[in-house]
Write a protein that binds this DNA or RNA. Structure first.
Lengths: 106, 106
DNA sequence: TATATATGCAACTTTTCGGTTTCGCAAATA
DNA sequence: TATTTGCGAAACCGAAAAGTTGCATATATA
């Protein structure tokens, strides 16, 4: 099953998990303590996040630390770029209108 | 039913619709021509996009033109901001390492 | 006025999703 | 060695999502 980063961040619990491990690597149990769900449910979310390379696993004995793969987040930023161009150009247009009004005032 | 912008952009068809109407306002029929689904399916997507204020409707006779509400896209950018800080700080750390190496060379 | 067109909405179906429960396995510990 | 602990995987379940079909309605057009 091919996972997509946009699908991965669609779920609020997964976004919260991302926010958590962005601060420090955590084990599934430690992550689950922050939610009102079972560890297994968290494990499922972690699997989805892993499948689309948003998180990485670090094995340490029988514990598995999950870390955020921050580079992957840039993909969203990249997608957003095309729209950022639009809202910035619109802002410039508004800027032009304002400066035109200013000139007319003079 | 409360809609979320992250859920809205999770669907690839909806992202494609957003990309389409970002260029110019379009009617449901015109949008549907670009996909291998029925007009009704597109209408459903448009409804979801409308519910979370990502698109606006402009009535013109019996036609309805859908336009992208670009301001709403900034919400994603805002969410991304916290992670942008992280990857930028990591970049700076790397930058420091590089400049340290450079100094040692001298 | 009769017909065609553009659209939304409701009902229904199939698929997907998020969750729980149960299990098995490997590592730590008594 | 026996038991506890940390974890993933599979089976199952209910809810939601995405799609289709079949309407109803309003606006054009012949």
């Amino acid at each position: 099953m091919r996972r997509d980063i946009f699908q991965a961040i669609a779920d609020p619990t997964r976004r919260a998990i991302i926010a958590l491990i962005a601060l420090q690597a955590m084990t599934p149990n430690a992550i689950a303590e922050n939610f009102h769900t079972t560890r297994q449910a968290v494990s499922k979310h972690l699997r989805i996040l892993t499948e689309c390379d948003l998180v990485k696993q670090e094995y340490q004995g029988r514990e598995i630390y999950y870390t955020l793969e921050i580079e992957k987040m840039k993909e969203i930023d990249k997608w957003l770029e095309q729209y950022r161009k639009i809202w910035e150009s619109r802002f410039n247009q508004l800027d032009n209108v304002l400066s035109t009004l200013k000139k007319q005032k003079k």
